[in-house]
């Protein structure tokens, strides 16, 4: 086994993400748009906004991941690239993981990097916590994109699979979202939440590629 096909899949996914017109700007725009809709919906009371801000960003992150995940395997399935990936000697799970990782780096990580700005709009204090929270969003986003990738791989052959992905992936997001939201509170006992958040991301990294591989072999049949 050589790592070459895996790197190629990674590189191709990266190139695709940047090539498609607005590229990484699209999920960023959706993320910010979804978040700023909230104060308009629930009112502008500063205390309320400060309280709900971190949670709103988790929800916006989860939704943004769903919006872009549809294309992750669909294009490859349609033009037959998927069959070529599966014929390489690299394990399908590694290919799937590489593609999902590239997708996360281009569409998910920028959202985490943008999160301090949005936190400020939700009247958070401008201190180092914002950067810690950004790291939490990045870790949680990793879990979101990998579980979402399972949904995307399962519905790769389904035309207009976007809604289906949401229905499949959202229940799988729950533990990560809960640990992530807990990590940002200072409730007693939440000290372990960052570790659990990291654990849920690692679990997604470990388990999701195998499910994605099984689903992709189905899509290629």
């Amino acid at each position: 086994m050589t790592p070459k096909p895996i790197l190629a899949a990674f590189g191709q996914a990266l190139a695709e993400a940047w090539a498609g017109g607005a590229g990484a700007l699209l999920p960023l725009g959706f993320f910010a748009g979804a978040a700023v809709l909230v104060p308009l919906g629930i009112g502008t009371d500063p205390d309320t906004l400060r309280a709900v801000g971190p949670g709103i960003l988790w929800v916006a992150l989860a939704l943004s991941s769903l919006v872009t995940l549809e294309r992750i395997f669909q294009a490859d399935t349609e033009d037959g690239t998927l069959d070529l990936w599966l014929q390489t000697e690299a394990p399908a799970s590694a290919i799937a993981a590489a593609k999902t990782m590239a997708h996360f780096l281009t569409a998910g990580l920028p959202l985490a990097l943008l999160s301090p700005l949005l936190s400020l709009m939700f009247l958070a204090d401008a201190d180092a916590t914002l950067l810690v929270h950004a790291a939490y969003y990045a870790i949680g986003g990793l879990a979101f994109y990998f579980w979402g990738g399972v949904g995307a791989a399962l519905s790769a052959t389904v035309r207009r699979g976007g809604l289906l992905i949401s229905l499949i992936a959202l229940p799988l997001y729950v533990p990560t979202a809960i640990f992530g939201a807990l990590a940002m509170t200072d409730a007693p006992g939440s000290q372990s939440a960052p570790l659990l958040l990291a654990a849920s991301a690692l679990f997604a990294l470990a388990a999701a590629p195998f499910a994605m591989a099984a689903a992709l072999r189905l899509a290629a049949d």
């Binding site: 729950v174 533990p175 809960i178 640990f179 006992g189 659990l196």
Partner: peptide, 24 residues
């Protein structure tokens, strides 16, 4: 595939909400 992925997640969901509850 989905049923099995869901099955490994249901205990996780239960545990995470349990933790959530113990803090409230």
């Amino acid at each position: 595939i989905l049923a099995m992925v869901g099955a490994i997640n249901v205990p996780l969901i239960h545990y995470s909400v349990d933790l959530f509850t113990s803090l409230h």
